[in-house]
């Protein structure tokens, strides 16, 4: 079955579908993700497509420290993503809460308490190139030889 697996690897490396979810950020990281779409960075030349639809996504980008309203909903979004899948935390907020993790806040960071996070991109906000690099370096680790990982 190696030939089939090689074919799958080749296809998967050029079609990474991305969904982004804002669970309580200030928008700064979201617009940097949007900036990746611009012809300047041209995310699609690497075979990454931003659809923002969990059901066809491979990678979930999470921005923002965790707001309690997402308690059940983030899990639901995560469950809808078909295997193989991975989540990347974009910015400081999902990692530590950044400036919002002070007394008086409504947020509940980190996000890794709620769903498994595979990679983290620190920065407030990180540059579009850093986000691109993170997606590109994580994708082979997760998707390559996925069906043969158990062996």
């Amino acid at each position: 079955m190696k030939a089939v697996q090689d074919l799958k690897n080749a296809v998967r490396s050029r079609s990474i579908h991305v969904c982004y979810v804002n669970v309580g950020s200030c928008n700064g990281c979201d617009i940097e993700i949007l900036a990746c779409l611009a012809p300047r960075y041209d995310i699609e030349q690497y075979g990454i497509y931003v659809h923002n639809n969990p059901r066809e996504a491979d990678i979930l980008l999470i921005t923002g420290g965790f707001s309690p309203q997402w308690e059940d909903k983030l899990k639901m979004v995560w469950d809808k993503i078909p295997e193989p899948k991975a989540a990347i935390a974009i910015g400081n907020c999902p990692i530590s809460g950044c400036v919002f993790n002070r007394e008086g806040t409504y947020l509940d960071p980190p996000v890794s308490k709620h769903i498994p996070i595979s990679a983290e991109v620190p920065g407030c906000p990180p540059r579009p190139t850093e986000i691109l690099a993170a997606v590109l370096s994580l994708a082979p680790v997760i998707f390559k030889d996925y069906e043969r990982k158990d062996e």
């Binding site: 804002n22 669970v23 309580g24 950020s25 200030c26 700064g28 923002g64 420290g65 707001s67 309203q69 997402w70 950044c98 400036v99 919002f100 002070r102 007394e103 008086g104 806040t105 409504y106 947020l107 407030c124």
Partner: peptide, 26 residues
Amino acid sequence: GYVKKGIERIMVGRPWQEVMFLAERV
């Protein structure tokens, strides 16, 4: 209610040197 951060509550009691950075992150 999906991105409620409570930034006004965080700002209270903090010096202006911190508040000017917090204000940016509204």
